[in-house]
Write a protein that binds this DNA or RNA. Structure first.
Ligand SMILES: Nc1nc2c(ncn2[C@H]2C[C@H](O)[C@@H](COP(=O)(O)OP(=O)(O)OP(=O)(O)O)O2)c(=O)[nH]1
Ligand SMILES: [Mg+2]
Ligand SMILES: [Mg+2]
Length: 544
DNA sequence: GCCGTTTTCGGCCCGACTGTTTTCAGTCG
């Protein structure tokens, strides 16, 4: 079973335990493990059984959870989950998707009314039977019916680019409201996750500004989910949820920290505070109810003895220890990028437009993939950036390279791509290592199958790449799991190549989404080949 | 279920909004 499926299975366990009324801390442990396993770059089977790097060494995973994760990885089954399902119907998990319906009410609905499914719930709500339950009245009943009706319209997670497109005009309108002192998008958007579940906006303003009402009146707003003094949530017409938080300017820093998250990072920071007898919340840092600070985001970190942590790595995956020890990475920045890999299909005019746009951005070189040499030669004359000829070659199942030596000699950069659909994890790893060891490749593309990243032993492959001077490609068009991939590559001492595959001027912009994921993967300039100068790249290509 | 410059037992982040409630539980961020 792959890591993502193990993660969602552990989340199912957490849901069922929660419905059963298990300890919230036990539930949290399962959710934490789910999150940790989903983020692993390589399959569980590649981790050592014991000692450094083993499952049990991962924070929040002890003997018990490690055993369950191994059981899932090896057999695809979990005995405990079967037992849970025999006690509590699995279908109850779907009730939790309805807004306002959590584990307590799901349990009450199941036990009090014998309801197991959304269909039964809808029938009961229509007949007014839900209000027989303690704590449920006509309003909740109506809300549940509405939730069932609106189920399909409520959006799923969307890409960061899509979220940017939707939210930028809204933020622009809110920014113009008189009395808005500061406005920033926080949450997973600020942490630059490749997909976001909602958009979280923080505003510094007086309550009298009633900024929440302005969001409610926005042309894109469809439905109001909640509306209080400091917090408003709406659903846009697109189905995207927007959460708005309003605070006075003097608590903007602490509020930014809270609203940026992640949840796991917040809990870790607040726990450090508790040990120092401090209380940390969106309202500031407090000692015995006396407010110490909170105007700046740094205040929160300083209060617990940490350096300011870049939002991209606030995931409780080691950044807190690093911030304490002064070992935070100096994350690679946009201004440091000098090269990109673009698609070769464009005609000479399009290529000229791309090269001049890239030069205008401060770029120094481009690898043009798949263009005829003649096109590149001609483009070179007016390019103003150095052009390299690139070619994609197919890697066979045994790691063979699908091109002749003469063909390879015609280009400057050889990019190996494997058709991974039919290979198991181990065979895939072996094929990739073998391909790298032919010495023919300059870049190894990230393997995908059926539109999803394929699992393999990233550490083993990245180490082979490091030895052979091969870059690991990170395609900015396909970023699922790219942050974990980047981190594993960096930790193996290898180097990434971010590739936009731009076919036109607009798509050159895509590279920054790749950069975001490299940053989430703790990458510094030295970990990303796009920061090399043209001369340095040339030397690298010559395996110098 | 995990974990330990307090601890191997007994804690585990903190607050806003809603509905149903005569004082707070549930859900969500
Ligand atoms: N302290 C604390 N903060 C939380 C909790 N839940 C959420 N937050 C904070 C951190 C989150 O990043 C921020 C926004 O919440 P969201 O539910 O929108 O999560 P986030 O944006 O991280 O991910 P998303 O893509 O929306 O699923 O609020 C919590 O239980 N405790
Ligand atoms: Mg969010
Ligand atoms: Mg949110």
């Amino acid at each position: 079973m792959d890591n993502e499926t193990i993660g969602s299975t552990l989340d199912q366990v957490a849901d069922l335990l929660e419905i059963e009324g298990a300890s919230v801390f036990r539930v949290r442990a399962y959710r934490g493990a789910a999150r940790t396993v989903s983020a692993l770059a390589s399959p569980v089977s590649t981790l050592p059984e014991k000692g450094p790097g083993s499952l049990e060494e991962l924070p929040g995973i002890g003997k018990d959870l490690a055993g369950k994760i191994r059981e899932l990885a090896e057999t695809g089954e979990l005995a405990m989950l079967h037992e849970l399902k025999s006690r509590t119907p699995e279908s109850l998990i779907h009730l939790l998707e309805l807004p306002g319906l959590g584990p307590k009410r799901a349990k009450a609905i199941h036990e009090g009314l014998g309801i197991d499914t959304i269909e039964e719930l809808e029938k009961a709500a229509r007949e007014g039977r839900l209000r027989a339950l303690k704590g449920v009245g006509p309003k909740l009943e109506a809300q549940i019916l509405e939730g069932i009706a609106a189920r399909a319209a409520r959006g799923k997670r969307i890409s960061l680019a899509e979220a940017e497109a939707q939210v930028e005009p809204i933020v622009a309108r809110l920014r113009e409201v008189p009395g808005v002192l500061r406005i920033e998008v926080a949450g997973s958007y600020r942490r630059r996750r490749d997909n976001v579940g909602d958009v979280d906006i923080l505003v510094a303003a007086d309550v009298s500004v009633a900024i929440g009402k302005k969001l409610i009146a926005d042309p894109q707003t469809d439905k109001v989910l909640a509306d209080g003094d400091t917090k408003t949530s709406v659903l846009l017409k697109s189905g995207l949820q927007v959460d708005l938080r309003v605070v006075p300017e003097e608590t903007f820093g602490a509020a930014m920290h809270y609203f940026t998250g992640s949840k796991a990072h917040n809990i870790a920071i607040r726990t450090l505070g508790v040990r120092k007898k401090l209380k940390i919340s969106e309202w500031g840092v407090f000692q015995e109810d006396k407010r110490l600070s909170g105007e700046r985001e740094e205040d929160v970190f300083e209060a617990v003895g940490l350096a300011w942590v870049p939002p991209e790595i606030r995931e409780d995956r080691g950044e807190i220890d690093a911030a304490r020890e002064g070992k935070l990475p100096k994350l690679v920045e946009r201004a440091e990028l000098r090269g990109d890999f673009v698609a070769g299909k464009p005609d000479a005019d399009e290529l000229a437009a791309i090269t001049s746009a890239w030069r205008a951005k401060g770029g120094a070189w481009l690898v043009v993939i798949g263009a005829p040499r003649s096109v590149i030669e001609r483009a070179r004359e007016h390019a103003g950036v150095e052009l390299f000829a690139g070619r994609v070659v197919t890697i066979g199942e045994g790691g063979s390279i699908g091109a002749s030596e003469e063909e390879l000699a015609e280009v400057d950069v050889v990019i190996g791509e494997i058709d991974a659909a039919n290979l198991a994890e181990k065979a895939l790893t072996q094929a990739l290592v073998a391909a790298v060891e032919t010495g023919c490749l300059h870049v190894l593309a990230r393997p995908f199958g059926a539109g999803k990243p394929r699992q393999f032993d990233v550490e083993a492959v990245a180490k082979a790449c490091r030895e052979r001077g091969v870059l690991l490609g990170l395609d900015a068009r396909f970023l699922q799991g790219a942050d974990g991939y980047a981190r594993a590559v960096k930790e193996a001492g290898a180097r990434l190549a971010l590739t936009s595959h731009a076919r036109n001027v607009e798509e050159v912009e895509l590279l920054r989404y790749g950069l975001d994921q490299a940053r989430r993967g703790w990458c510094e300039a030295k970990d990303v080949a796009n920061t090399l100068s043209a001369g340095e790249l040339r030397t690298f290509l010559a395996r110098g």
